[in-house]
Design a protein around this nucleic acid. Structure first.
Lengths: 179, 179
DNA sequence: CCGCTCATGTAACTGGTTACATGATTTA
DNA sequence: TAAATCATGTAACCAGTTACATGAGCGG
């Protein structure tokens, strides 16, 4: 029933998050996005709350009222249909754009570095390299923290992020050398 | 003097593209996005044409009517203010989110791979690894083609994309090994 | 002359953001 | 008890997408 067209990226990510943390409040999901070192989604309330209601209405999430003290709230868990939807979202050979080079704001900027004076270019590259190193340290810590403790998925994700950042820093050095 | 708030990512990319290819039609810009191995922006007409008009109205692009045969059309080039805006977009130490881990649809999916059966997981990883290798070959070709010929910026961008893809493939192998 | 690609646009939609509003709970 | 944070939500906005419309030029 319910022709249920595919999930958007954010929907997929939220559904997956709920699946892996269930039972799970919208607030917890938001936090997850907010503390993530990958700041693509703001995890704004205006995105998350309506989205989870939507998933509930589509029968992919089931909500139970949570009453801690006098606090209203809902905890979500995926339904059977929700799990199926998640699998259908991940499972089949992903469309090309999923495999394609991810968009990268840094790469875009570097592409037009030629518009800057030599001095500004140097300053840019220096600042970026140090900023990148900071980020790497953060993700590295996150990576170590999630090691072992049965959080394999988290750890692997962090590893992925780390490898990505390192590749970028390496590339940055190439860029600097080439100028 | 139009307080000219900052440029969006797409605006920055378009302005940069026009700067590096000027004089340049909107259509050429679209094509650039469409053939890019990084398929984040569709390069849809509905995005590009209004955007470039906007930049023109803000005084960042200057348009000259192009008449080839009986064909209407506009060629754009950045104005002095446009170049300044481009520099201001790239130049200063970029905000943290530019340096942060770029969002990656593949990483998101892998994060929830645990929702799949062992067999499906295997199938997924196999399909992704081969798809990734295909993409790598494509970018590699692009990379070689842009070598030398004074297209340093293009080449470096392609290199960046290539390193990113390779890091991803390496990571994929880790994922497979860890399961 | 038919269909394909080049080329320029517009209109409706939509998903996510910003900014705001509200109240409960914890901490200084 | 005041300030901070937890927690839930809404409303207006906006950038980019999809889908459509139009017409020029060109290859068969």
């Amino acid at each position: 029933m319910g022709a249920s067209r595919g999930l958007t990226e954010l929907e997929g990510a939220v559904l997956g998050l709920v699946w892996s943390r269930a039972p799970c409040t919208p607030y917890a999901v938001r936090r997850e996005f907010q503390v993530s070192p990958s700041p693509f989604w703001s995890g704004s309330a205006g995105a998350i709350y309506p989205l989870m209601r939507r998933l509930e209405k589509r029968g992919l999430l089931r909500a139970e009222a949570r009453v801690t003290g006098r606090r209203r709230g809902r905890q979500y868990a995926p339904t059977a249909a929700g799990l199926r939807a998640l699998r259908a979202w991940i499972g089949p050979p992903p469309p090309a754009w999923v495999l394609g080079v991810p968009m990268d704001a840094l790469r875009t900027r570097v592409e037009f570095l030629g518009a800057l004076s030599r001095a500004r270019r140097e300053a840019f590259l220096t600042s970026v390299e140090s900023g990148l190193s900071t980020h790497i340290r953060i993700v590295q810590r996150h990576c170590r923290r999630s090691m072992g403790k049965a959080k394999t998925a988290d750890h692997l994700t962090a590893r992925g992020a780390l490898l990505m950042l390192r590749a970028r820093r390496l590339w940055l050095r190439e860029v600097r050398a080439a100028r």
